[in-house]
Design a protein around this nucleic acid. Structure first.
Lengths: 204, 204
DNA sequence: ATTCCATGTGAATTTAAATTCACCTTAAGC
DNA sequence: GCTTAAGGTGAATTTAAATTCACATGGAAT
Protein backbone atom coordinates (compact mmCIF):
# COMPACT_ATOMS: atom_id res chain seq x y z
CA UNK A 1 0.00 0.00 0.00
CA UNK A 2 2.70 2.40 1.01
CA UNK A 3 4.65 1.29 -2.04
CA UNK A 4 1.77 2.18 -4.29
CA UNK A 5 1.43 5.56 -2.71
CA UNK A 6 5.11 6.06 -3.13
CA UNK A 7 4.98 5.10 -6.79
CA UNK A 8 2.25 7.64 -7.31
CA UNK A 9 4.33 10.24 -5.55
CA UNK A 10 7.23 9.43 -7.82
CA UNK A 11 5.14 10.02 -10.91
CA UNK A 12 3.93 13.28 -9.48
CA UNK A 13 7.49 14.33 -8.89
CA UNK A 14 8.41 13.32 -12.37
CA UNK A 15 5.66 15.46 -13.73
CA UNK A 16 6.77 18.44 -11.70
CA UNK A 17 10.37 17.94 -12.70
CA UNK A 18 9.43 17.64 -16.33
CA UNK A 19 7.38 20.80 -16.12
CA UNK A 20 10.24 22.63 -14.48
CA UNK A 21 12.60 21.33 -17.07
CA UNK A 22 10.46 22.57 -19.90
CA UNK A 23 10.17 25.92 -18.21
CA UNK A 24 13.92 26.02 -17.74
CA UNK A 25 15.14 24.81 -20.92
CA UNK A 26 12.82 25.78 -23.66
CA UNK A 27 11.21 29.00 -24.66
CA UNK A 28 8.88 31.17 -22.80
CA UNK A 29 5.68 29.75 -24.12
CA UNK A 30 3.34 28.69 -21.48
CA UNK A 31 3.60 25.26 -20.15
CA UNK A 32 1.51 22.83 -22.10
CA UNK A 33 0.07 19.68 -20.68
CA UNK A 34 0.84 17.98 -23.95
CA UNK A 35 4.46 18.91 -23.69
CA UNK A 36 4.90 17.74 -20.15
CA UNK A 37 3.26 14.49 -21.06
CA UNK A 38 5.41 13.89 -24.09
CA UNK A 39 8.51 14.58 -22.02
CA UNK A 40 7.56 11.59 -19.95
CA UNK A 41 6.40 9.55 -22.90
CA UNK A 42 2.81 9.76 -21.77
CA UNK A 43 -0.46 10.78 -23.30
CA UNK A 44 -1.76 14.13 -22.10
CA UNK A 45 -4.73 12.52 -20.48
CA UNK A 46 -2.45 10.44 -18.29
CA UNK A 47 -1.49 13.45 -16.23
CA UNK A 48 -5.05 13.73 -15.07
CA UNK A 49 -4.59 10.50 -13.16
CA UNK A 50 -2.15 12.35 -10.94
CA UNK A 51 -3.37 15.88 -10.88
CA UNK A 52 -6.84 17.25 -10.93
CA UNK A 53 -5.91 19.81 -13.55
CA UNK A 54 -3.14 22.01 -14.79
CA UNK A 55 -3.55 24.34 -11.89
CA UNK A 56 -2.77 21.56 -9.49
CA UNK A 57 0.44 20.93 -11.38
CA UNK A 58 1.39 24.55 -11.08
CA UNK A 59 0.71 24.45 -7.37
CA UNK A 60 2.96 21.46 -7.04
CA UNK A 61 5.70 23.31 -8.87
CA UNK A 62 5.31 26.19 -6.49
CA UNK A 63 5.68 23.86 -3.54
CA UNK A 64 8.71 22.26 -5.14
CA UNK A 65 10.41 25.60 -5.46
CA UNK A 66 9.57 26.59 -1.94
CA UNK A 67 11.20 23.44 -0.70
CA UNK A 68 14.35 24.04 -2.67
CA UNK A 69 14.71 27.56 -1.37
CA UNK A 70 14.16 26.62 2.23
CA UNK A 71 16.48 23.67 1.97
CA UNK A 72 19.20 26.08 0.93
CA UNK A 73 18.64 28.20 3.99
CA UNK A 74 18.74 25.12 6.22
CA UNK A 75 21.89 24.01 4.54
CA UNK A 76 23.87 27.18 5.09
CA UNK A 77 22.62 27.38 8.64
CA UNK A 78 24.03 23.98 9.34
CA UNK A 79 27.21 24.33 7.39
CA UNK A 80 28.29 27.82 8.39
CA UNK A 81 28.39 29.64 11.64
CA UNK A 82 29.21 33.16 10.63
CA UNK A 83 26.44 35.30 9.17
CA UNK A 84 28.62 36.71 6.42
CA UNK A 85 29.71 33.26 5.36
CA UNK A 86 26.14 32.08 5.41
CA UNK A 87 25.04 34.85 3.13
CA UNK A 88 27.93 34.34 0.80
CA UNK A 89 27.21 30.66 0.50
CA UNK A 90 23.52 31.31 0.03
CA UNK A 91 24.40 33.56 -2.84
CA UNK A 92 26.34 30.82 -4.51
CA UNK A 93 23.48 28.40 -3.99
CA UNK A 94 21.25 30.90 -5.69
CA UNK A 95 23.67 31.09 -8.53
CA UNK A 96 23.39 27.35 -8.97
CA UNK A 97 19.66 27.38 -8.72
CA UNK A 98 19.42 30.02 -11.39
CA UNK A 99 21.83 28.43 -13.78
CA UNK A 100 20.44 24.97 -13.33
CA UNK A 101 16.80 25.86 -13.41
CA UNK A 102 16.06 28.90 -15.44
CA UNK A 103 12.49 27.96 -14.75
CA UNK A 104 12.60 28.81 -11.09
CA UNK A 105 13.27 32.51 -11.26
CA UNK A 106 10.82 32.70 -14.08
CA UNK A 107 8.10 31.32 -11.91
CA UNK A 108 9.01 33.23 -8.82
CA UNK A 109 9.43 36.56 -10.48
CA UNK A 110 6.64 36.34 -12.90
CA UNK A 111 3.04 35.77 -12.32
CA UNK A 112 1.83 35.58 -15.83
CA UNK A 113 2.07 31.89 -15.41
CA UNK A 114 -0.63 31.83 -12.84
CA UNK A 115 -4.20 31.99 -13.82
CA UNK A 116 -6.56 34.61 -12.63
CA UNK A 117 -6.57 33.24 -9.13
CA UNK A 118 -5.43 35.62 -6.51
CA UNK A 119 -4.58 32.70 -4.28
CA UNK A 120 -1.47 31.66 -6.15
CA UNK A 121 -0.09 35.13 -6.07
CA UNK A 122 -0.68 35.28 -2.36
CA UNK A 123 1.07 31.97 -1.88
CA UNK A 124 3.98 33.21 -3.90
CA UNK A 125 4.07 36.34 -1.80
CA UNK A 126 4.14 34.25 1.33
CA UNK A 127 7.00 32.21 -0.03
CA UNK A 128 9.05 35.23 -0.98
CA UNK A 129 8.34 37.20 2.13
CA UNK A 130 8.92 34.12 4.24
CA UNK A 131 12.25 33.74 2.55
CA UNK A 132 13.07 37.34 3.28
CA UNK A 133 12.27 36.67 6.92
CA UNK A 134 14.76 33.81 6.93
CA UNK A 135 17.37 36.15 5.55
CA UNK A 136 16.48 38.69 8.16
CA UNK A 137 16.92 36.11 10.86
CA UNK A 138 20.39 35.29 9.63
CA UNK A 139 21.22 38.97 9.50
CA UNK A 140 19.89 39.72 12.98
CA UNK A 141 21.85 36.85 14.38
CA UNK A 142 24.93 38.23 12.73
CA UNK A 143 24.20 41.62 14.21
CA UNK A 144 23.88 40.18 17.67
CA UNK A 145 27.26 38.57 17.27
CA UNK A 146 28.61 41.81 15.86
CA UNK A 147 29.56 40.21 12.56
CA UNK A 148 27.26 42.65 10.85
CA UNK A 149 26.80 46.30 11.63
CA UNK A 150 24.02 46.35 14.22
CA UNK A 151 22.84 49.77 13.18
CA UNK A 152 21.52 48.53 9.87
CA UNK A 153 17.90 47.85 9.21
CA UNK A 154 17.86 44.08 8.78
CA UNK A 155 14.78 44.11 6.62
CA UNK A 156 16.41 46.47 4.18
CA UNK A 157 19.59 44.44 4.15
CA UNK A 158 17.64 41.27 3.43
CA UNK A 159 15.94 42.92 0.51
CA UNK A 160 19.22 44.23 -0.77
CA UNK A 161 20.55 40.71 -0.73
CA UNK A 162 17.51 39.61 -2.62
CA UNK A 163 18.18 42.46 -4.99
CA UNK A 164 21.46 40.86 -5.96
CA UNK A 165 19.75 37.65 -6.90
CA UNK A 166 16.70 38.88 -8.71
CA UNK A 167 18.29 41.03 -11.41
CA UNK A 168 20.77 38.26 -12.02
CA UNK A 169 17.95 35.85 -12.66
CA UNK A 170 16.26 38.32 -14.93
CA UNK A 171 19.31 39.11 -16.99
CA UNK A 172 20.39 35.52 -17.21
CA UNK A 173 17.04 34.53 -18.45
CA UNK A 174 16.54 37.36 -20.89
CA UNK A 175 19.97 36.95 -22.32
CA UNK A 176 19.34 33.25 -22.93
CA UNK A 177 22.24 32.34 -20.72
CA UNK A 178 24.67 34.81 -22.24
CA UNK A 179 24.79 37.01 -19.17
CA UNK A 180 27.79 36.40 -16.97
CA UNK A 181 26.07 35.10 -13.89
CA UNK A 182 29.13 34.19 -11.95
CA UNK A 183 30.77 37.52 -12.78
CA UNK A 184 27.72 39.29 -11.50
CA UNK A 185 27.80 37.57 -8.16
CA UNK A 186 31.53 38.02 -7.84
CA UNK A 187 31.24 41.73 -8.45
CA UNK A 188 28.15 42.22 -6.34
CA UNK A 189 29.34 40.46 -3.24
CA UNK A 190 32.09 42.91 -2.18
CA UNK A 191 29.68 45.82 -2.62
CA UNK A 192 27.17 44.09 -0.44
CA UNK A 193 29.82 43.21 2.10
CA UNK A 194 30.73 46.85 2.23
CA UNK A 195 27.21 47.58 3.45
CA UNK A 196 27.33 44.91 6.12
CA UNK A 197 30.58 46.15 7.55
CA UNK A 198 30.72 47.01 11.20
CA UNK A 199 31.79 50.58 12.04
CA UNK A 200 30.38 51.76 8.80
CA UNK A 201 30.03 55.45 8.28
CA UNK A 202 26.57 54.97 6.87
CA UNK A 203 24.57 56.13 9.81
CA UNK A 204 24.70 59.72 10.89
CA UNK B 1 -3.08 63.99 -43.87
CA UNK B 2 -0.84 64.61 -40.92
CA UNK B 3 -3.94 65.17 -38.81
CA UNK B 4 -5.27 61.78 -39.78
CA UNK B 5 -2.01 60.16 -38.98
CA UNK B 6 -2.06 61.91 -35.69
CA UNK B 7 -5.57 60.73 -34.93
CA UNK B 8 -4.51 57.23 -35.70
CA UNK B 9 -1.55 57.60 -33.41
CA UNK B 10 -3.81 58.80 -30.67
CA UNK B 11 -5.96 55.71 -30.95
CA UNK B 12 -2.91 53.55 -30.87
CA UNK B 13 -1.76 55.29 -27.76
CA UNK B 14 -5.15 54.87 -26.21
CA UNK B 15 -5.01 51.19 -26.90
CA UNK B 16 -1.58 50.89 -25.36
CA UNK B 17 -2.62 52.90 -22.34
CA UNK B 18 -5.73 50.82 -21.90
CA UNK B 19 -3.71 47.66 -22.13
CA UNK B 20 -1.26 48.97 -19.59
CA UNK B 21 -4.07 50.02 -17.35
CA UNK B 22 -5.63 46.60 -17.42
CA UNK B 23 -2.29 45.04 -16.71
CA UNK B 24 -1.79 47.44 -13.82
CA UNK B 25 -5.06 47.42 -12.27
CA UNK B 26 -6.64 44.09 -12.65
CA UNK B 27 -5.48 40.62 -12.02
CA UNK B 28 -2.75 38.69 -13.61
CA UNK B 29 -4.77 37.07 -16.26
CA UNK B 30 -3.38 37.58 -19.61
CA UNK B 31 -4.34 40.58 -21.52
CA UNK B 32 -7.40 39.97 -23.62
CA UNK B 33 -8.17 41.85 -26.79
CA UNK B 34 -11.79 41.88 -25.79
CA UNK B 35 -10.95 43.55 -22.54
CA UNK B 36 -8.81 46.24 -24.06
CA UNK B 37 -11.51 46.94 -26.59
CA UNK B 38 -14.27 47.21 -24.03
CA UNK B 39 -12.15 49.58 -21.99
CA UNK B 40 -12.28 51.91 -24.95
CA UNK B 41 -15.88 51.15 -25.75
CA UNK B 42 -14.91 49.40 -28.94
CA UNK B 43 -15.58 46.05 -30.49
CA UNK B 44 -12.62 43.68 -30.37
CA UNK B 45 -12.32 43.69 -34.11
CA UNK B 46 -11.75 47.43 -34.09
CA UNK B 47 -8.31 47.01 -32.63
CA UNK B 48 -7.26 45.23 -35.77
CA UNK B 49 -7.63 48.49 -37.65
CA UNK B 50 -4.72 49.81 -35.64
CA UNK B 51 -2.58 46.80 -34.96
CA UNK B 52 -1.88 43.81 -37.08
CA UNK B 53 -2.45 41.49 -34.17
CA UNK B 54 -2.09 41.15 -30.45
CA UNK B 55 1.61 40.76 -30.74
CA UNK B 56 1.90 44.16 -32.32
CA UNK B 57 0.05 45.61 -29.36
CA UNK B 58 2.48 43.99 -26.99
CA UNK B 59 5.36 45.40 -28.97
CA UNK B 60 3.87 48.83 -28.73
CA UNK B 61 3.56 48.43 -24.98
CA UNK B 62 7.20 47.48 -24.84
CA UNK B 63 8.14 50.60 -26.74
CA UNK B 64 5.95 52.70 -24.48
CA UNK B 65 7.73 51.42 -21.43
CA UNK B 66 11.13 51.95 -22.96
CA UNK B 67 10.24 55.55 -23.63
CA UNK B 68 9.09 56.13 -20.09
CA UNK B 69 12.25 54.71 -18.64
CA UNK B 70 14.54 56.68 -20.87
CA UNK B 71 12.59 59.84 -20.32
CA UNK B 72 13.26 59.47 -16.63
CA UNK B 73 16.96 59.22 -17.23
CA UNK B 74 16.89 62.30 -19.43
CA UNK B 75 14.93 64.11 -16.80
CA UNK B 76 17.31 63.53 -13.93
CA UNK B 77 20.25 64.32 -16.16
CA UNK B 78 18.77 67.71 -16.91
CA UNK B 79 17.48 68.47 -13.47
CA UNK B 80 20.40 67.35 -11.34
CA UNK B 81 24.08 67.77 -11.62
CA UNK B 82 25.41 65.54 -8.92
CA UNK B 83 25.50 61.81 -9.57
CA UNK B 84 24.18 60.90 -6.15
CA UNK B 85 21.28 63.27 -6.51
CA UNK B 86 20.56 61.90 -9.93
CA UNK B 87 20.39 58.37 -8.64
CA UNK B 88 18.26 59.35 -5.72
CA UNK B 89 15.80 61.13 -7.92
CA UNK B 90 15.77 58.27 -10.37
CA UNK B 91 14.84 55.99 -7.54
CA UNK B 92 11.89 58.14 -6.67
CA UNK B 93 10.79 58.23 -10.29
CA UNK B 94 10.91 54.47 -10.25
CA UNK B 95 8.78 54.45 -7.17
CA UNK B 96 6.19 56.47 -9.01
CA UNK B 97 6.33 54.31 -12.06
CA UNK B 98 5.78 51.21 -10.01
CA UNK B 99 2.98 52.56 -7.94
CA UNK B 100 1.22 54.16 -10.86
CA UNK B 101 1.62 51.35 -13.31
CA UNK B 102 1.83 48.00 -11.69
CA UNK B 103 1.75 46.75 -15.23
CA UNK B 104 5.18 48.00 -16.11
CA UNK B 105 7.27 45.94 -13.76
CA UNK B 106 5.11 43.02 -14.58
CA UNK B 107 5.96 43.26 -18.21
CA UNK B 108 9.59 44.04 -17.73
CA UNK B 109 10.26 41.35 -15.21
CA UNK B 110 8.12 38.68 -16.64
CA UNK B 111 8.24 37.12 -19.96
CA UNK B 112 5.29 34.87 -19.75
CA UNK B 113 3.44 37.59 -21.46
CA UNK B 114 5.43 37.25 -24.60
CA UNK B 115 4.69 34.52 -27.01
CA UNK B 116 7.21 32.00 -28.08
CA UNK B 117 9.14 34.52 -30.06
CA UNK B 118 12.70 34.95 -29.02
CA UNK B 119 12.69 38.41 -30.53
CA UNK B 120 10.63 40.05 -27.82
CA UNK B 121 12.82 38.67 -25.14
CA UNK B 122 15.85 40.00 -26.93
CA UNK B 123 14.25 43.40 -27.26
CA UNK B 124 13.43 43.40 -23.58
CA UNK B 125 17.00 42.44 -22.82
CA UNK B 126 18.24 45.32 -24.93
CA UNK B 127 15.96 47.71 -23.09
CA UNK B 128 17.06 46.55 -19.69
CA UNK B 129 20.73 46.34 -20.48
CA UNK B 130 20.55 49.66 -22.27
CA UNK B 131 19.03 51.13 -19.17
CA UNK B 132 21.80 49.64 -17.09
CA UNK B 133 24.29 51.31 -19.39
CA UNK B 134 22.62 54.64 -18.78
CA UNK B 135 22.95 54.07 -15.06
CA UNK B 136 26.56 53.14 -15.55
CA UNK B 137 27.18 56.34 -17.44
CA UNK B 138 25.76 58.37 -14.58
CA UNK B 139 27.88 56.46 -12.13
CA UNK B 140 31.08 56.81 -14.13
CA UNK B 141 30.51 60.50 -14.48
CA UNK B 142 30.09 60.70 -10.73
CA UNK B 143 33.28 58.77 -10.25
CA UNK B 144 35.18 61.13 -12.48
CA UNK B 145 33.96 64.04 -10.41
CA UNK B 146 34.78 62.09 -7.26
CA UNK B 147 31.21 62.14 -6.05
CA UNK B 148 31.26 58.37 -6.08
CA UNK B 149 34.06 56.12 -5.01
CA UNK B 150 36.12 55.64 -8.19
CA UNK B 151 37.33 52.23 -7.11
CA UNK B 152 33.94 50.67 -7.51
CA UNK B 153 32.94 48.60 -10.47
CA UNK B 154 30.32 50.80 -12.14
CA UNK B 155 28.57 47.89 -13.77
CA UNK B 156 28.08 46.20 -10.44
CA UNK B 157 26.88 49.41 -8.86
CA UNK B 158 24.37 49.93 -11.64
CA UNK B 159 22.99 46.46 -11.13
CA UNK B 160 22.83 46.99 -7.42
CA UNK B 161 20.74 50.07 -8.03
CA UNK B 162 18.53 48.06 -10.27
CA UNK B 163 18.38 45.50 -7.50
CA UNK B 164 16.68 48.04 -5.28
CA UNK B 165 13.98 48.62 -7.81
CA UNK B 166 13.22 45.14 -8.99
CA UNK B 167 12.40 43.45 -5.69
CA UNK B 168 10.27 46.43 -4.81
CA UNK B 169 8.27 45.98 -7.95
CA UNK B 170 7.91 42.30 -7.29
CA UNK B 171 6.79 42.65 -3.71
CA UNK B 172 4.48 45.50 -4.47
CA UNK B 173 2.84 43.54 -7.15
CA UNK B 174 2.57 40.26 -5.32
CA UNK B 175 1.23 41.92 -2.23
CA UNK B 176 -1.48 43.62 -4.26
CA UNK B 177 -0.21 47.00 -3.21
CA UNK B 178 0.09 46.17 0.46
CA UNK B 179 3.86 46.27 0.47
CA UNK B 180 5.30 49.53 1.75
CA UNK B 181 6.95 50.78 -1.39
CA UNK B 182 8.00 54.12 -0.10
CA UNK B 183 9.36 52.58 3.08
CA UNK B 184 11.42 50.21 1.04
CA UNK B 185 13.04 52.94 -0.96
CA UNK B 186 13.62 55.04 2.10
CA UNK B 187 15.36 52.20 3.86
CA UNK B 188 17.30 51.01 0.83
CA UNK B 189 18.73 54.34 -0.19
CA UNK B 190 21.09 54.92 2.76
CA UNK B 191 22.44 51.40 2.38
CA UNK B 192 23.12 52.03 -1.25
CA UNK B 193 24.64 55.39 -0.50
CA UNK B 194 26.97 53.68 1.90
CA UNK B 195 28.32 51.67 -1.03
CA UNK B 196 28.84 54.73 -3.18
CA UNK B 197 30.77 56.56 -0.55
CA UNK B 198 34.19 57.87 -1.38
CA UNK B 199 37.04 56.64 0.82
CA UNK B 200 35.11 53.52 1.51
CA UNK B 201 36.92 50.66 3.17
CA UNK B 202 35.44 48.22 0.73
CA UNK B 203 38.43 47.70 -1.43
CA UNK B 204 41.49 46.09 -0.07
C1' DA C 1 -22.60 66.50 -54.03
C1' DT C 2 -19.93 62.59 -54.66
C1' DT C 3 -16.35 59.70 -53.63
C1' DC C 4 -13.41 57.40 -50.75
C1' DC C 5 -10.95 56.00 -46.93
C1' DA C 6 -10.20 55.48 -42.15
C1' DT C 7 -12.56 53.59 -38.57
C1' DG C 8 -15.91 50.73 -36.60
C1' DT C 9 -19.28 46.66 -36.08
C1' DG C 10 -21.23 41.85 -35.20
C1' DA C 11 -21.27 37.63 -36.64
C1' DA C 12 -18.66 33.88 -38.10
C1' DT C 13 -14.33 31.22 -38.25
C1' DT C 14 -9.99 29.34 -36.50
C1' DT C 15 -7.04 27.81 -33.31
C1' DA C 16 -4.91 25.88 -29.57
C1' DA C 17 -5.35 24.29 -25.53
C1' DA C 18 -7.37 21.88 -21.54
C1' DT C 19 -10.30 18.48 -20.14
C1' DT C 20 -13.48 14.30 -20.36
C1' DC C 21 -14.61 9.71 -21.47
C1' DA C 22 -15.06 4.96 -22.65
C1' DC C 23 -12.12 1.61 -23.04
C1' DC C 24 -7.57 -1.10 -22.37
C1' DT C 25 -3.54 -3.31 -19.44
C1' DT C 26 -1.16 -5.16 -15.84
C1' DA C 27 0.36 -6.37 -11.50
C1' DA C 28 -1.01 -7.25 -6.52
C1' DG C 29 -4.06 -9.41 -3.26
C1' DC C 30 -7.23 -12.95 -2.60
C1' DG D 1 -6.67 -18.34 -11.67
C1' DC D 2 -9.77 -14.49 -10.82
C1' DT D 3 -10.80 -9.71 -9.43
C1' DT D 4 -9.86 -5.21 -8.89
C1' DA D 5 -7.97 -0.86 -9.17
C1' DA D 6 -4.35 2.16 -10.50
C1' DG D 7 -2.33 3.92 -14.37
C1' DG D 8 -2.56 4.44 -19.18
C1' DT D 9 -4.59 5.46 -24.04
C1' DG D 10 -6.79 7.93 -28.23
C1' DA D 11 -10.49 10.01 -29.69
C1' DA D 12 -13.89 13.29 -28.77
C1' DT D 13 -15.57 17.52 -26.44
C1' DT D 14 -15.24 22.13 -24.47
C1' DT D 15 -13.60 26.40 -23.99
C1' DA D 16 -11.72 30.70 -24.57
C1' DA D 17 -9.41 33.40 -27.18
C1' DA D 18 -7.67 35.55 -31.40
C1' DT D 19 -8.62 36.64 -35.88
C1' DT D 20 -11.28 37.38 -40.33
C1' DC D 21 -14.83 39.24 -43.07
C1' DA D 22 -18.69 41.41 -45.27
C1' DC D 23 -20.95 45.23 -44.29
C1' DA D 24 -21.77 50.21 -42.16
C1' DT D 25 -20.81 55.31 -41.51
C1' DG D 26 -19.23 59.80 -41.35
C1' DG D 27 -16.21 63.32 -42.45
C1' DA D 28 -12.48 65.26 -45.64
C1' DA D 29 -10.82 66.15 -50.32
C1' DT D 30 -12.07 66.63 -55.04
Amino acid sequence: MSTEKLASEIRKDQIVEAALHILSDKRVKKLKITEIASHLGLAPSALYRHFKNKDAILSAILEHIREKMYKNVEHVRRKRDNAIDRLQELLSLHENLISQHQGIPRIVFSDELWGQEKIKRQRMYLIVSGYLLELEAIICEGQRKNEINPDLNPEAVARMFFGIVQPAALLWHMSEGTFDLSGHFTAAWPLFQCVLQVESRCDP
